[in-house]
């Protein structure tokens, strides 16, 4: 039983890769215009990402937006996954700082389409 690879393993890996590809394809790739900044899941502010460069700090997370994109410049958290998410401009793209409970997400046009939100 303790083999390195079995037929079930190949099925598992294929299924995971297919699932990833499926979720990837469903991601909307259109450019968005506004971004929602949420704190504790509640909407904090919605900003226009095509306006002038503006910097704002929420819960220790400094966010820069304007000129066509939005990005998290710095955060007080340890892993800085949100900073590494880079510049966001496409609908559904997001950067999340779990330790500070702040999220930034580019809004999709169709609000009710589930994948525009989850993407």
């Amino acid at each position: 039983m303790r083999r390195l690879v079995t037929r079930a393993d190949v099925i598992i890996i294929t299924a995971v890769i297919l699932l990833a590809a499926f979720l990837w394809v469903l991601n909307p790739k259109e450019t968005g215009e506004t971004a929602v900044i949420r704190v504790d899941g509640k909407e904090y502010i919605t900003v226009n990402i095509n306006g002038e460069l503006t910097e704002t700090t929420v819960n220790g997370v400094s966010i820069v937006y304007g000129g066509g994109d939005i990005y998290i410049k710095d955060s007080t958290c340890r892993d800085k996954i949100c900073v590494k998410a880079g510049r966001l401009s496409k609908q559904g793209q997001s950067a999340v700082c779990a330790p500070n409970r702040v999220s930034v997400e580019i809004k999709g046009k169709s609000k009710n389409a589930p994948w525009a939100v989850t993407g």
Partner: peptide, 20 residues
């Protein structure tokens, strides 16, 4: 649940590939 936004699921495809 802690972030309170489904935005976190945007990481799902990347996470699945990394898991493999």
């Amino acid at each position: 649940f802690t972030v309170g936004s489904s935005a976190v699921f945007g990481y799902a495809p990347v996470m699945l590939i990394a898991s493999v």
